[in-house]
């Protein structure tokens, strides 16, 4: 993983942990909304590419949130 992708994975997981108290689907929606509000397109492209390569390091909520965002893209 590149240093940038490392950072993006860390950021996504941090956001996921912040909503860790919520039920899975609600947490996924919150994480997705947060990332949609604050991440620039190339960051999204890089993390989507990382998911295509297996998405190592991403927790379940973060991964599902990013997948839901990708579906919207």
């Amino acid at each position: 993983m590149s240093a940038t992708v490392d950072r993006l994975v860390m950021m996504a997981n941090q956001i996921s942990r912040a909503f860790g108290r919520l039920p899975h689907d609600e947490a996924v929606a919150q994480v997705a909304a947060h990332i949609r509000s604050f991440w620039e397109k190339r960051m999204l492209a890089q993390i989507f590419e990382h998911i295509d390569e297996g998405g190592a390091g991403l927790d379940a909520v973060a991964r599902d949130a990013l997948q839901s965002l990708r579906a919207l893209a």
Partner: peptide, 8 residues
């Protein structure tokens, strides 16, 4: 679309 933050 949102832009890049400084670290990004």
């Amino acid at each position: 679309d949102p832009g890049l933050r400084i670290p990004n």
